[in-house]
Computed example of a mutant assay.
Amino acid sequence: MPTEAVPRRAGAPVALLLAAHPLPALAVTGLATALAAAVGRGPAGCLLVALAVLSGQLCIGWSNDRIDVARDVRAGRRDKPLAVGTLAPSSATAAACAAGGLCVPFSFASGPAAGLVHLLAVAAGLSYNAALKRTGWSWAPYALAFALLPAFVTLGLAPDRPWPPGWLLAAGALLGVGAHLTNVLPDIEADLACGIRGLPHRLGPGRSRALAALTLLAASAVLVLGPPGAPGATGWTGLAAAAALATAAALPRPARPDSRLPFLLAIALSALDLVLLLLRGTDLH
């Protein structure tokens, strides 16, 4: 459980921002926007991708803390504005609904197929919040949402609106599972005390770390080896760097079991994967 406490006198805008899970929301939005620029969506297309993904991520983040408020209070989560009383549940509910409402037109602005795919990804995130995080299928929403993100980007490319290659979808799914495992690691004990029994909780910290390393490394390997042609020196060097990051993300931290460093390293590895993909110069559509 994180030790960083939310100031009790934090104003409503600050508390609302903290309850939105801003770091993962901005990271996912930034990666999707960069991918949109790489495939040639243009400034307007990149803006539409950013607005759609950000609104979807905000909806997922606010709904997560709203649904979990009672559990977070029992767990003594000092990093949660709703749990410490700096944000009213009604405010989080209104913010999540507003973000979800905006996500619909922003998503369909990229086209009907792209809109449906992105809303399916957002629905996967909401299903995790509402129910699946408590089951052995907790990994599935992450895998589906991360796999569909590149599809949302490429399906907005007029006039062809193509699906991305299968290896890119597979890499996204693997990256999503790794992100799930590293995100849950710091909270396993607190979650178990509240009856949460997702996949990482059933595996335990040790096996979850090992699986996180394997899935994150597998995602990088697919991105390096999946496109046609030889990876070259840049690809192999990048894969070695990805292996180092995946290993570091999965290392135990006895002094700080609540550290968010594994999840931060997973985000860094995602950015590295995107760079490797762009350096390969692969046609993603």
Rank of each mutant, 00 (worst) to 15 (best):
Glu4Gly: 02
Ala5Arg: 15
Arg9Tyr: 13
Gly11Gln: 06
Pro13Ala: 10
Ala19Ile: 08
Ala20Ile: 06
Pro22Val: 12
Thr29Lys: 09
Gly30Phe: 08
Ala32Met: 03
Ala37Gln: 14
Gly45Asp: 10
Gly45Arg: 05
Leu47Glu: 04
Val49Cys: 03
Ala50Lys: 14
Leu51His: 09
Val53Asp: 07
Val53Trp: 07
Gly56Leu: 06
Gly61Met: 10
Arg66Asp: 04
Val69Ser: 10
Arg71Gln: 12
Ala75Arg: 03
Arg78Ser: 13
Lys80Cys: 06
Leu82His: 09
Val84Lys: 07
Val84Leu: 04
Ala88Gln: 05
Pro89Gln: 04
Ser91Lys: 03
Ala92His: 12
Ala94Val: 09
Ala94Lys: 09
Ala95Ser: 14
Gly101Met: 05
Leu102Phe: 14
Cys103Ala: 15
Phe106Leu: 06
Ser107Met: 07
Ser110Trp: 01
His118Thr: 05
Ala123Arg: 09
Gly125Asn: 08
Tyr128Trp: 08
Asn129Glu: 04
Asn129His: 07
Ala130Trp: 13
Ala131Ser: 10
Thr135Cys: 09
Gly136Phe: 04
Gly136Tyr: 05
Trp137Ile: 03
Trp137Arg: 09
Leu148Arg: 07
Leu148Tyr: 03
Pro150Asn: 13
Ala151Met: 01
Val153Cys: 10
Thr154Trp: 08
Thr154Asn: 09
Thr154Pro: 11
Gly156Arg: 11
Gly156Tyr: 12
Gly156Asp: 10
Pro159Leu: 07
Pro162Phe: 02
Pro162Val: 02
Leu169Met: 14
Ala170Ser: 05
Ala173Thr: 12
Val184Pro: 00
Asp187Phe: 04
Glu189Asn: 02
Glu189Trp: 01
Ala190His: 09
Asp191Ser: 13
Asp191Pro: 13
Gly195Gln: 00
Arg209Met: 11
Arg209Gly: 15
Ala212Asn: 06
Leu214His: 00
Thr215Pro: 01
Val224Phe: 10
Gly229Phe: 09
Ala230Leu: 15
Ala230Asp: 15
Ala240His: 14
Ala242Val: 10
Ala244Ser: 11
Ala244Glu: 05
Leu245Pro: 00
Ala250Tyr: 03
Ala255Cys: 01
Arg256Pro: 01
Ser259His: 01
Pro262Gly: 09
Pro262Lys: 03
Pro262Tyr: 02
Pro262Leu: 02
Leu265Tyr: 02
Ile267His: 00
Leu269Ile: 04
Leu269Glu: 15
Val275His: 07
Arg280Phe: 00
Arg280Ala: 04
Thr282Ile: 03
Thr282Gly: 06
Asp283His: 14
